[in-house]
Amino acid sequence: MEHQRYLLRWLGAGLCALLLTGCVGRVIPPEPHSLTEPVDIYLLDHGRHASLVLPREEGGVVRYSYGEWRWYVEGRRHLPAGAAAMLWPTAAGLGRGVYPEIDSPGQFHRLAPEGLTDIYPLQAEAVRVIALRRRLDRHFERADGEPVPSDEFGLEFVPHPRGYSAAHQSNLVVARWLRALDVEVEGSSWLSNWRVTMP
């Protein structure tokens, strides 16, 4: 018990330090003239976590989010579970929501029932968007069992092969997805504190 209290105090001190440093993830999309086939993508800020919306070739959009399995999927939001997720790798999930009828940011409140703090419209090369979407979709194709639906987030979740930890949490994963689309992310996106700078 004393060991657990020590870990929780350490975690609290670490999170306070992050808050005091005012971590900001500075997002810089590629130069417009460098894109041969630009498509619109959207970084969604939900306050404490982020998700990414990509266009579908068939029309509409698909939304992806990454998170700690117990926290996001099972709804176990007590302090020990949150501390465990930050201190060592725990089970993670990849969330996906497909919305063929949604095609504009004005409708995004329908795909994010947990709420929206900000919507950041960006552009990326179509071939990169298709490659990222296919890579993420492969997790669903290879999953054992059916995806687990979450009404709270409007997504279906499957297990993700890489565990959730302080070094691999939801916002950092979204930042990696953005980098795969040739979008630069500078600074720290740990706290879902985003600033978009046009090139």
Score class of each variant (00 low, 15 high):
residue 1 M to D: 15
residue 1 M to P: 15
residue 4 Q to L: 13
residue 7 L to K: 12
residue 8 L to F: 14
residue 15 L to A: 10
residue 18 L to D: 12
residue 19 L to M: 14
residue 21 T to V: 14
residue 22 G to D: 06
residue 23 C to N: 10
residue 25 G to E: 06
residue 26 R to T: 15
residue 27 V to Q: 04
residue 27 V to Y: 09
residue 30 P to V: 04
residue 31 E to T: 12
residue 32 P to N: 09
residue 34 S to F: 06
residue 34 S to W: 09
residue 35 L to V: 00
residue 38 P to R: 06
residue 43 L to C: 01
residue 44 L to N: 07
residue 45 D to F: 05
residue 46 H to W: 13
residue 47 G to Y: 11
residue 54 L to W: 01
residue 56 R to V: 06
residue 61 V to R: 00
residue 62 V to M: 04
residue 66 Y to H: 01
residue 67 G to V: 04
residue 67 G to D: 02
residue 68 E to M: 05
residue 68 E to R: 07
residue 70 R to S: 09
residue 71 W to D: 10
residue 71 W to F: 14
residue 75 G to A: 05
residue 80 P to F: 11
residue 80 P to E: 10
residue 81 A to I: 14
residue 83 A to R: 09
residue 83 A to P: 02
residue 85 A to Q: 08
residue 86 M to V: 11
residue 86 M to F: 15
residue 90 T to M: 13
residue 92 A to R: 01
residue 93 G to K: 02
residue 93 G to D: 01
residue 98 V to K: 00
residue 99 Y to R: 10
residue 101 E to I: 12
residue 101 E to V: 12
residue 104 S to W: 12
residue 106 G to A: 03
residue 107 Q to F: 05
residue 107 Q to I: 05
residue 110 R to A: 12
residue 111 L to F: 00
residue 112 A to E: 04
residue 113 P to M: 03
residue 116 L to A: 06
residue 116 L to T: 03
residue 119 I to A: 14
residue 120 Y to N: 02
residue 122 L to K: 03
residue 122 L to I: 05
residue 123 Q to E: 08
residue 124 A to T: 05
residue 129 V to A: 04
residue 130 I to R: 10
residue 130 I to A: 14
residue 131 A to R: 05
residue 135 R to T: 08
residue 136 L to V: 03
residue 137 D to T: 05
residue 141 E to L: 13
residue 145 G to R: 04
residue 148 V to W: 08
residue 153 F to H: 07
residue 160 H to R: 11
residue 163 G to V: 08
residue 163 G to M: 08
residue 170 S to W: 10
residue 174 V to L: 06
residue 178 L to N: 01
residue 180 A to M: 15
residue 180 A to H: 15
residue 183 V to A: 02
residue 184 E to Y: 09
residue 185 V to W: 03
residue 191 L to R: 03
residue 192 S to P: 01
residue 195 R to D: 06
residue 195 R to A: 15
residue 195 R to K: 13
residue 197 T to Q: 06
residue 197 T to N: 06
